[in-house]
Amino acid sequence: MSELSSSEPPSEPLSEPPSEPPSEPPSEPPSEPPSPTGPFVSDLFPFPSHLLSTQNYSTSTSHFVAQLNLLSETYSSIRIVKGDGSCFYRSFLYGLITILAEPENESERLRIIEYVQKSIITLEEQGYDPLIMEGFQEELLELLTSTIPSSRSGSLNLHTTLTDPHGPSQMSTWYCRPLCSSYIKSHPETFTPFLLSYPSLDSYCKSEIEPSSIESSEISIQAIVKAFGVKVGVEYLDGHDEEKVVRHVFGEGLEINMLYRPGHYDLIYKK
């Protein structure tokens, strides 16, 4: 087995490029991505002190520390997500399921359950084998239906369920990928211009989205937020500018926030 890198740079920005795309290499490697052997999603840690104490940021050669301090005006905690190629999808799913478990988001939870229930039909139309896909869909529905807005102790159980290495979140995390592919293939007018060297959307999705070890790209992020009807805000900790941090917002709806360090996504939470 070859060792897989989870630190690919993001692909070219999609339709709404930021003023400073985060594609240039940073002035120094910002950090080692979280160990692929750590928990899938960590406990909640204080932000940014947890990163400052675990990463060797050099204040003299980069702006990472200044950027973290800027972000600390908005965000107060972080969950470190395993760096195994699925960090974006895992962050997305964890963020989504925990937000949907909040009582005030019940109508969104029901809407998304309905979307997931119907997803097999769309996937079948896009050429996916429904027999295989049902196995993944069932696990995601199990997560969505078992996380009924719950008592306070529920959130602890939810974290345990979502990080269980053999629980439903593993297959559900991957299921985000075909949902993403299926959205891309059913919106060729939007996505065909971003195919790069691939001859078709099918081959693009098969190589760049569906393999478990392939990192997300801005294309897959655009697709997944639209597919689920939610919003993902990404703060780009790129070390370029000590006076600002570029934030991308994808989609609209309930909001999940992530910190992007080149090659890796973690979940961050507002004060």
């Binding site: 070859s2 897989l4 996916y128 084998d129 295989i132 991957w174 990928r177 569906e210 393999p211 478990s212």
Partner: peptide
């Protein structure tokens, strides 16, 4: 079976 593995393969 290696870097292009996807759970889609049964």
């Amino acid at each position: 079976l290696q870097n292009q593995w996807s759970p889609i393969y049964d």
